[in-house]
C-alpha cells in the first residue's frame, strides 16, 4: 500500500453562516500552520470548473471535508461529483450549536 503523501482539506466554503467562516479559517490553520506542505485546500469553484490540478488533488489524495452546518454542502458536492471523502468534520457538533441555525 502506497503511503499517503498529501491530504486534501475541503471546508464548506459558504458565506451565509458564521460557521462556514470558522470552517474556512480552520482550514487555513491546518494548511499554513499545522501541516504545511502535507495538506492542500480544495477550492470548490476551481474543482467544478475542471481545473486539472484541483481535479487531480481530490482524485489522487484522501480528502477531509469540514461541513459547517447540517446542509452538509461539502459532503453533498462530493456525492454529486462521485467522490468519497476520507473523513468529515461537522463544525456544529464541535461548537455544540444546533445542526442548522440562523
Amino acid at each position: 500500500m502506497e503511503k499517503v503523501q498529501k491530504v486534501a482539506i475541503y471546508p464548506c466554503g459558504g458565506v451565509g453562516f458564521p460557521l462556514s467562516s470558522v470552517a474556512r479559517y480552520a482550514t487555513f490553520i491546518v494548511t499554513e500552520d499545522l501541516l504545511p506542505g502535507e495538506t492542500e485546500i480544495v477550492d470548490a469553484v476551481r474543482l467544478i470548473s475542471g481545473f486539472p490540478e484541483d481535479v487531480e488533488l481530490v482524485e489522487n489524495n484522501p480528502t477531509i471535508i469540514i461541513d459547517g452546518c447540517a446542509y452538509q454542502c461539502g459532503s453533498n458536492l462530493f456525492r454529486l461529483l462521485g467522490l468519497k471523502p476520507a473523513a468529515r468534520i461537522l463544525a456544529t457538533v464541535i461548537s455544540k450549536l444546533p445542526p442548522t441555525f440562523v
Binding site: C12, G14, V15, G16, S20, A44, V45, Y71, C73, L80
Partner: peptide, 12 residues
Amino acid sequence: MILCVPAYLRGV
C-alpha cells in the same frame, strides 16, 4: 443577498 456557492451546488 449573497449567493453561497456550496449551498447553490447542493440545491438549497
